[in-house]
Design a protein around this nucleic acid. Structure first.
Length: 454
RNA sequence: GUGGCUAUAGCUCAGUCGGUAGAGCGCCUGGUUGUGGUCCAGGAGGUCGCCGGUUCAAGCCCGGUUAGCCACCCCA
């Protein structure tokens, strides 16, 4: 048999892992719908020029090509002029296109969730995949989008992730910043290359304060004092509105106050205040969060798993003043995206969350001998009719083997048909008489459950 | 795209100084009268990633190649 090797970056779970993933997806979806987000799905491909819009040349896009393309249509370019297609690398670009395409039929502000696979042609490693699932929520407005949505979106996400706590998800920390604060502060200092400064600040975790200070001077042309100011700003963090005062004081000290800074601070303060009341301890302002250098214009978010910070952000997003635009109308939006595959891969590899079994089956009906298989099928039918997931033994092997079949799969009950039916809980060994038309397993054994790992 | 490491049984790995392969787990069979897990006995299973080179002889040395892992970059 040909040797099969896993394809790096294209994760696949075993059935019990899939149970965990499916549970995570269910909880996310339920929470999103609870908050009024409507579900959509967009096609997997977009025209390549659309995907590469916004100058995102760094994104590694998988391009779609037909096997028969060559030879068949040397005239394709001159003829149909088919657009080159690429697999989407996130759900925001397709959503923006979808909004424009359906603007006349959507009601704004439009709240949608979208859970789909995305593809990125990057070099994979732990927690980084080339094919992975994202779960996005966004709110998009026509022309304008009130700031309170920038407060709502991370709180919905905090609630969704919070709902997974009981099955083993570690606590999460949503780090927030506001692009206007950073931009206002830097401009107030006299630094005009806001993106450049942010890019350096983003390296703080990796290379440390001193190196970043050097880079700010060398690359961004900052004075030592300006660099120090940027680093002081980046050092500010906290979960209450004192961070706003801290920034104001800092700005005053460097004489860097601007209107833009004040606007940003007001927004950030409102977010922190609301979050403190609605999800205490979850949302933390962190003035060094940069995120998606080019397109975010207001709040930016990043989410860490407490105890797994090395994994990177499992959920991030922000506010775009121009999520989509058709030239005449602009559609601002704010959204967050959960990296479901990254999250689930860690939950599984670290044993944080496990499924009680990998098969849906609650009962395995034994087969006495092949001549009596119909009797076992009848028992199974009776159980299934009452919603009990049931399977029939693959062969009329010795009962010990049939029990083993159940054990290997985590099926909790084995049914022995006969004059007097009996059902055995193979975990306890307890075996009792039972009637296929009335017996039911305990509620907790009816379906696989997801539980915290050991 | 750049750099480092790795590739031997289904899985995790050992294999000394070059002398045609081992362990643990798993799997199969048996331990009598149809009830698993523990225990005991036995058994199956490997083109040592692939191609080439050196050598009397290569899992081991050399070159190439493919794949995987890790780091950088970037990001979910």
């Amino acid at each position: 048999m040909a040797r099969v090797t896993p394809l790096s970056g294209f994760p696949e779970w075993l059935p019990d892992g899939r149970v965990v993933e499916q549970h995570v997806l269910d909880v996310l979806r339920r929470t999103f719908e609870l908050h009024g987000f409507a579900g959509i799905e967009t096609r997997a491909v977009e025209p390549l020029d659309q995907l590469l819009r916004k100058g995102e040349t760094s994104k590694e896009v998988y391009v779609l090509r037909r096997l028969q393309e060559e030879g068949e249509d040397a005239s394709a370019d001159g003829g149909r002029g088919e657009k080159q297609l690429g697999l989407h690398f996130d759900l925001t670009v397709p959503f923006a296109r979808y909004v424009l395409e359906n603007a006349g039929r959507l009601a704004f502000p439009f709240k949608r969730y979208q859970i789909q696979k995305v593809w990125r042609g990057e070099r994979p490693q732990e927690g980084r995949f080339r094919e992975f699932v994202q779960a996005d929520i966004d709110v998009v407005g026509a022309g304008e989008l009130p700031y309170h949505y920038e407060v709502e979106v991370p709180l919905v996400m905090a609630e969704a992730l919070g709902a997974l706590r009981e099955v083993g998800l570690p606590p999460v920390r949503v780090l927030v910043n506001n692009r206007k604060v950073a931009e206002g502060f830097y401009r107030g200092l006299g630094l005009s290359d806001v993106e450049g400064v942010l890019r350096q600040i983003d390296k703080l975790d990796k290379i440390g304060v001193e190196k970043v200070a050097e880079l700010l001077v060398a690359e961004q042309g900052a004075t030592a004092e300006q660099a120090a100011a940027c680093l002081d700003l980046a050092a500010i963090h906290g979960s209450d509105t004192t961070v706003v005062d801290d920034v104001r004081k800092l700005a005053a000290r460097y004489d860097a106050a601007t209107d833009l800074l004040e606007t940003g601070l007001a927004e950030l303060g409102a977010l922190i205040e609301a979050a403190g009341a609605r999800a205490p301890g979850v949302v933390v302002a962190d003035l060094r969060i940069a995120r998606g250098l080019d397109y975010y214009t207001g709040s930016v978010y990043e989410t860490l798993l407490v105890g797994h910070e090395q994994l990177g952000s499992i959920c991030s997003g922000g506010r775009y003043d121009t999520l989509a635009s058709d030239g005449k109308n602009t559609y601002p939006g704010v959204g967050l995206s959960v990296g479901v595959s990254r999250l689930v891969s860690r939950l599984l590899s670290a044993g944080l969350m496990t499924a009680t079994r990998g098969v849906p089956t609650a009962v395995l009906v034994a087969v006495t001998d092949e001549d009596h298989r119909a009797q076992s099928d009848a028992v199974a039918a009776a159980l299934r009719a009452r919603g009990i997931p049931t399977d029939v033994a693959p062969s009329a092997a010795k009962f010990g083997k049939q029990i083993k079949v159940a054990d290997r799969r985590g099926i909790p009950f084995v049914w022995f048909p006969g004059e007097e039916h009996q059902v055995k809980d193979i975990r306890s060994g307890e075996q009792v008489g039972a009637d296929p038309t009335t017996w039911a397993p305990p509620a907790e054994d009816l379906h696989p459950r997801v539980v915290p790992g050991e």
